[in-house]
Write a protein that binds this DNA or RNA. Sequence first.
DNA 1: ATATGTTTTAAACGATCGTTTAAAACTGGA
DNA 2: TCCAGTTTTAAACGATCGTTTAAAACATAT
Lengths: 225, 225
Amino acid sequence: MTQQSHTTGTRERLLQVASELFAEKGYAGVSISEITGNAEANKAAVNYHFGSKEKLYQEAWRHAHERITEQIPPDGGVSEDRPPEQRLRGRIHSGLQRAMHGDAIEFRIMRNEMANPTGLLHQVIEDTIGPLRKATQNILAELLGPKATDMDIQLCELCVVSPWLHFKHHKHATKHKGLAPVIDEDMLEPVADHFTAYALAGIRQIRERIESNTDSGDSNSRSKA
Amino acid sequence: MTQQSHTTGTRERLLQVASELFAEKGYAGVSISEITGNAEANKAAVNYHFGSKEKLYQEAWRHAHERITEQIPPDGGVSEDRPPEQRLRGRIHSGLQRAMHGDAIEFRIMRNEMANPTGLLHQVIEDTIGPLRKATQNILAELLGPKATDMDIQLCELCVVSPWLHFKHHKHATKHKGLAPVIDEDMLEPVADHFTAYALAGIRQIRERIESNTDSGDSNSRSKA
DNA sequence: ATATGTTTTAAACGATCGTTTAAAACTGGA
DNA sequence: TCCAGTTTTAAACGATCGTTTAAAACATAT
């Protein structure tokens, strides 16, 4: 009931509330009034602490990304010296865990930005997600063998990565059930197993296709086009 | 230069422009003024023809969906009596073709709605996409065998369907290159082959897992939970 | 207690939002 | 030509948007 029962600073509260609301409604769907209202701050506080709504949006993404990265490492706890099958399973496990974790704020902001690009997060996302993608692609290059082209790798990356991008957090999934099945958190391991088994079988099949089709001498594989 | 050089009615023009803009910027990101401006119509025309912006949004989705459905059949031209492998390839081919077709308006509106739900399209999308999902699930049920649970089927559906949901139209993909690789339209067949081979291998692997793990007598498979 | 620098606040800014209104323009049949 | 019905238009509505301003409240060191 007292006027200052805030355990954290205004800036932090704004970041937290903003990232949640941006994840839920997208950039254009959230107003500064709504953010400051839920954060129990004044309307002008956004422009004081961040300069503009756009900067707040970028900072909110960075905030959410850093928070989830320090909680869930992208390699799934599988070190570099393990065989590629285990490392792939680590990536899948990590991605799935991130998609199912808490409110999955980082994930949902990114999905919003992919579906409806404001362009404001383009650079920030590319800087942070780029290395993760590269790591996954390196694993796939190992699994697909030396004859795999960049296109082969990218297509397999898409098949491996896209399933967990469609996962919604339980709370939202029940609201209006979408494409992805609703899953408890204790289902993480079996689902990760499912995705991994599926992916490894698919990748192995693609490798067979590559190596049976490209028997002849024209070894223009690994081309950039 | 004349004042009436419109080859089509105002209502049609509004639907066309609105669906394109909604696909590009999402519901909240598009204003009525922008729509009527690009459609060379008066601001009040939206409320006259559709009653509100919300109704226009729903009609624009229905418009885009009907247009694409009559152009690209969801079964990929593979009839019901073919083996499930071919029917699955038909579904993948159709989905991929829809994702790559023209501006992929229907697709991008749906992606926007999935990432950032307004709730306005919920019923319309479920009515139209529901039967398509059911058909795919039936194919997967055949391929996975009688011991597959609903969860098995849904997880495989997610793995099969999600890759093409991330495809962007070439024009947008080049703007700021996202997760999906940029692909020409003449690559449709090889990419469909890739996805199909990958998917069938994955599904076969999952079936083996199911049938080797559930050897015992407790046949509570196909449970609804 | 006074001064200094930081943070918060209320109020107002111009702009744009979705919608409404009523008159103007257009249409095709009597 | 006149008229009923449909479609289009300009103007204005209240509401909310993101931002700015300047004063109030707060914190801290001398």
